[in-house]
Design a protein around this nucleic acid. Structure first.
Lengths: 252, 252
DNA sequence: AAAACCACTTGATCCACATCAAGAATTTCT
DNA sequence: AGAAATTCTTGATGTGGATCAAGTGGTTTT
């Protein structure tokens, strides 16, 4: 998220074939020819600023979106003014899949920092996927993956302790940054403690206390949005829920 | 689930075009010709008995499945022997969508009672959907709907009280039975209290106590698996989370 | 640079729900 | 049918994390 781009974009036409995210994104596994055809329907607008909405719940659905830089929060506003944070999305990730169902968005998406996206008009994508079986297959896989990820989140919210939730959260970012070529152990989180808590089903205070405790236990160093993971293996132990994680140090 | 079939199957070839579930199921919105073609790839085996697995986590994925009678629980076994119940599925519902991602099942599915299913070999479905845009569209919609439903579940587990969870659970069954032509207010639940609790992120005891309390408050009558909803509007009030639900009527 | 605001932290208290425990009602086994 | 196991209910007690409250430090406004 707040990491510098390594690649210079000078003189490079913005297109899937030149995009470093292609292996994570919709073109994943497509032939160069197919990527070219997919590229033909993609729109690239100007970036969003922090706080701008990419779309809001009940907006008419026309495009899927892939984050190309920055980060995005999706959330569903609930009846009484509150919201449920549904996810934080990094470059290469596809959002808006929930809106296919009835042609209107069921949740909102907002930029957490300066953020660029590719827009993929869905009706065109659909037509294209009819004549490109590999694209169709890729779409099915991505939709299925989204389902699998939400399933994991159900287990997190249904069964895990606050400690396990935060460890899972941190390792998820660690892995995703690593996939994108950034440090797995040193990164900036673009969302607030409040948003983390909302996402994980915890109060802000609990999140704050856990950060402090993890730091006291030398699992990480944290200063505001900047996080350094010092003991990733032990964080994985915590995620497992086996209190053997605590053996190294102790606990009451 | 434990409701009698209204339609006699004598002399009716088992096929989508004669199936009373067609409007809820994959054929929804397809032309009769298209339904015929879809029907051509569907396999119908003999029924499963209570406790039989339709598939298990890590099984190779080959088919999606639609429940045609009975009911099914899906769950993901977690590391330490426990499980997270992911859903309870009624006739017309499609399961196995999470397995498309990498050709292997990520969760398990088990029959809660005598249960019949249609199997839809996925590779054939994929081929067919390439030449039947309306089927492709239907698939995208069903996958998207699944995502939307899991999203609602995230809010349930992240933000709702035990009371709200059980009310939501009951109304979900009420609506789904109604859609299927059964009573919205009088039905049998095929799963145990333990399974309900697991699904809702609650202890068995909490579920049991809530049933008792709802009964004391004349919201419903319950005897073992048999549930009669006596005040559906008030259950909806509870789902909203406004405690004005407890005043005889009204809304905050 | 002071003022106002906001995100975050830390401590004290509370409570919804888990856990523990024991009995009652059912179902399954022999 | 009787025994054993399972499921469900109910009561007593415990606790993880919410809520309440009061700073603290950083950021924006003027």
């Amino acid at each position: 998220m707040t990491s510098r781009k390594v690649v210079s974009f000078e003189n490079i036409k913005v297109a899937c074939k030149n995009c470093s995210l292609a292996t994570l994104c919709l073109p994943m596994g497509l032939t160069p020819d197919d990527v070219e055809r997919l590229d033909g329907i993609i729109k690239r607008g100007r970036p969003y600023h922090r706080g701008d909405h990419l779309y809001r719940g009940a907006d008419k659905f026309h495009s899927l979106r892939v984050i190309t830089s920055g980060s995005v929060k999706t959330y569903s506003p609930n009846e009484d003014g509150g919201e449920q944070v549904l996810g934080f999305h990094l470059p290469g990730e596809l959002i808006g899949l929930d809106a296919i169902q009835d042609d209107s968005h069921t949740c909102s998406a907002i930029a957490l920092e300066t953020t660029a996206v590719c827009e993929i008009p869905f009706s065109q994508l659909e037509s294209l996927s009819c004549i490109m079986p590999s694209l169709q297959h890729q779409m099915y896989r991505l939709l299925s993956r989204e389902i699998g990820q939400e399933t994991e989140m159900l287990t997190l919210l249904g069964k895990k302790s606050a400690e396990e939730r935060l460890a899972t959260f941190l390792l998820s970012f660690s892995e995703r940054f690593k996939q994108r070529g950034f440090s797995a152990s040193d990164f900036f989180l673009s969302m607030s403690r409040h948003e983390i808590g909302n996402y994980l089903g915890l109060a802000v205070e609990t999140v704050s206390r856990l950060f402090t405790r993890f730091q006291d236990e030398n699992l990480l160093r944290v200063e505001r949005k900047h996080v350094q993971l010092l003991d990733i293996p032990r964080l994985y132990d915590i995620v497992q829920g086996c209190d053997s994680a605590k053996s190294t140090q102790s606990r009451g």
